[in-house]
């Protein structure tokens, strides 16, 4: 059975290969960065198993690795190598030679993911399912990436190892930005463990005039946005704002409709997601991927939409929840 751990090992192997290439080019801090980052992928299961057995040392070492990654990220700037005219000409040339067949492997990733996701429940070898049924989306995505790689090698007639070289080029140009989503999720875990959310909700409910339902609604909506901006994730903001303001004040005291309040409240939080560098995988990573000079370029282009939608959401809630 294809377990998601096997895919993590592949990611780990890719990171180690990237580290090796950097060692050979004497980019030692970049190499150390990828090598440390391969740790959670190669040893992740062992660490979590040790935590289950109440052994703290492996997790503590990993924590030390997180701090080291932070320091290394601050040292090394992002460097994407400039494109030479010769490379550009070579790409134009092979684009013309291969033509639209180039699209097939790229489109194969989403389409195969989809197909495997739906077929996955029925695929089995000698009674064992081919894909882990508990992590079907992830194993589908992983297998689809591998199959697409085979297709890409066939279409381009490149050496298979060439794909690692090119993948590593992309990885290096992403640099520390690649780590940001994972490290932010880690910060979310720390904030949850230290009760940051409850403290903010307590502060908020202490200052709003609780008898006015509009004041409560505005505090809830703004709280969802602000808290999502801080945490980078509306999922983290929702239980906090709901427990602090939504449920006690709006639903129980002012009789708001819980289904509408929940649905539109969550979407109000998403307006915050469009605004925050904390939602790095949506806002910062693409700015790096698209080689924008301003790391806040994507956020800048989303601000007007986010603010307008926020106003729409508040208006919708004001109209609908107190029916």
């Amino acid at each position: 059975m294809l377990r998601v751990e096997y895919l993590y090992w592949l990611v780990g192997a890719f990171l180690i290969a990237a580290a090796w290439f950097n060692v050979r080019e004497r980019h030692y801090s970049m190499a150390a960065f990828w090598l440390i980052l391969s740790g959670p992928f190669v040893f992740g299961d062992l660490v979590l198993a040790a935590v289950q057995r109440n052994e703290a040392l492996p997790a503590q070492l990993m924590g030390g690795g997180v701090v080291a990654l932070g320091l290394l990220a601050a040292r090394g700037g992002l460097r994407s190598k400039a494109d030479t005219p010769a490379e550009r000409e070579q790409r134009e040339h092979s684009a013309a030679r291969i033509g639209n067949r180039l699209f097939a492997p790229a489109l194969a990733i989403p389409l195969l993911t989809l197909a495997l996701f739906f077929a996955g429940r029925h695929l089995s070898v000698n009674g064992t399912p081919l894909l882990d049924p508990k992590a079907l989306t992830l194993t589908s995505l992983g297998l689809a990436s591998l199959l697409a790689l085979v297709a890409a090698v066939r279409v381009t007639r490149a050496r298979p190892l060439h794909s690692i070289v090119e993948g590593r080029r992309l990885l290096d140009s992403l640099g520390w930005a690649v780590l940001l989503p994972m490290i932010l999720a880690t910060l979310g875990g720390v904030f949850a463990a230290t009760g940051v959310g409850e403290t903010i909700a307590a502060l908020a409910s202490a200052v709003i005039p609780v008898d006015s339902r509009m004041a409560c609604l505005l505090a809830f909506a703004l709280g969802m946005v602000v808290f999502t901006v801080i945490m980078g994730n509306a999922f983290a903001a929702f239980p906090v704002m709901m427990a602090g303001i939504g449920l006690p004040l709006l639903v129980l005291r002012h009789g708001a409709d819980p289904a509408i309040l929940g649905a539109i409240g969550m979407l109000t939080g998403y307006c915050g997601t469009l605004l925050t560098p904390m939602a790095a995988n949506f806002n910062i990573v693409p700015a790096v991927l698209l080689e924008l000079p301003d790391q806040y370029g994507v956020i800048r282009s989303q601000v007007p939409t986010a603010l307008a939608l926020m106003v729409v959401n508040v208006a919708l809630m004001a109209l609908l929840v107190f029916r």
Partner: peptide, 21 residues
């Protein structure tokens, strides 16, 4: 705590598998 949550969130980097393609 840092180490454990970091490992638990490694799924966020599974997209690295698409980079070679």
């Amino acid at each position: 705590l840092l180490g454990r949550t970091f490992v638990e969130n490694r799924v966020l980097l599974l997209f690295l598998l698409t980079l070679p393609v």
